[in-house]
Write a protein that binds this DNA or RNA. Sequence first.
DNA 1: CGCGGCGCATGAAGCGATTCAACACGCGTG
DNA 2: CACGCGTGTTGAATCGCTTCATGCGCCGCG
Lengths: 251, 251
Amino acid sequence: MSIVLPSPGRRVPCEQCPLRATPHFRAFEPAELKFVSSFKAGELQAETGTTLMSEGTHSAHMYTLLSGWAFRYKSLPDGRRQILNYMLPGDLLGLQGSVIGEMDHSVEALSPVVLCVFQRDRLDELFRNHPGLGFDITWLASREERMLDDHLLSLGRRTAMERAAYLIAFLHQRAAAVGLDGSKQLHIPISQLHVADTLGLSIVHTNKTLRKLADRKLIRWHDRACEVLDVDGLMEIAEWDGLPERKRPLI
Amino acid sequence: MSIVLPSPGRRVPCEQCPLRATPHFRAFEPAELKFVSSFKAGELQAETGTTLMSEGTHSAHMYTLLSGWAFRYKSLPDGRRQILNYMLPGDLLGLQGSVIGEMDHSVEALSPVVLCVFQRDRLDELFRNHPGLGFDITWLASREERMLDDHLLSLGRRTAMERAAYLIAFLHQRAAAVGLDGSKQLHIPISQLHVADTLGLSIVHTNKTLRKLADRKLIRWHDRACEVLDVDGLMEIAEWDGLPERKRPLI
DNA sequence: CGCGGCGCATGAAGCGATTCAACACGCGTG
DNA sequence: CACGCGTGTTGAATCGCTTCATGCGCCGCG
């Protein structure tokens, strides 16, 4: 479960990147595309539950999530776990390790995932020769910071019910922002334990809170998945306006 | 209180930056120094309590805190406030506004502060001509993210006592990392209301928790200031290892 | 110069969240 | 195929934290 499997041959060239083809990401300059294409060292696939990176290690790579869901977390010495944020297609993983040197959180796959692997030692080359891409990385870091700000507000000042509503509305919106809410109803691949570890609540109380949201017909809970029925209702409970997601960069 | 006063003439040239002279920051290349010197549009001084930037505005500037303390916060529509992080000398303010466009948090001065003002519209020039500085900005963003991760862990999974101990140890360490713990004992310029709004607790319970820390001789509380008596004791309670602060960039 | 506001302090009552405990269901596996 | 395990569910007891209330000292201001 905790081993990352090397890619079995499959490798999407950046020129035909299925993500970039969607309308959610900004286009590349030809030179940028060429560089990124050579920057990409390979692809990685992993199962649900795989630990993609661990706190304290010096990962030699940086990744972009091509498909699937993952989450970042930190733990206290006695085992208490806090989920920090979720990663969806197009998100950068392991930037901290590349920029500062050591990871201070772990990352785990919530679903089967595919990752693009980049060589971190060429990051300075990226900044040197492709300032637009350097700016994009800063943009992505800023966006992460903004999400963490929202989470902090939630953990610190919202009630259990508001927190739960916020989290699900947040995940729904992020999924929608990469087109995951296609034809059929969106299912968020998380268990109630994930919710509890994100909201800073116990599993029992999380269960009772989610039950109330389900009773109000805002969500429907499945096995290890949450179906969103009424985003607006959730956002209203949380007093949350949503993320101003426009076209964004993709490395 | 909420007006930013323009600089009354005083202006430290970057070449004689009092911060850079300290051993806590990395040195500039001559070309970088020259650019930053022209990048700096001026200086700003403000009193304790001044709102330096507000949520929702499109600030035209970016700042580096030259001296003093400040904090970032967000509020819910009904007034509940959450402090997100604290800023100390050398910290970048308003990067979000420059990179993404709109501020999603406010910033307030905790003490009299002096800010270096930069022109945000020359940020792309920075990335284009000085990749090292672009990388530095990403580094600083990564560092902020790391601190927010720690705060999230604290809010989500630590008890009131552990949270309080963590916060004070954290602030102490950050102050020490820029040499603010000089000769005399360090005084952190915050009120118990600030602590409460950081920890996600009520003022009453915050007061009782801080009382316990004081009874244990770990801190001493003054009027709008916290004196740290035993950092190691605090870190032990919080089960916190501290930030791995090495030499860091300064724009 | 008295009054209001801020910062700190403390007791009492009430509620929201935790912990303990028990159960149901599906699934993979020895 | 029985057993363990992960996931979701629910009731009861307990406790940590909030809310309400009150008081004190200090300072700025009408």
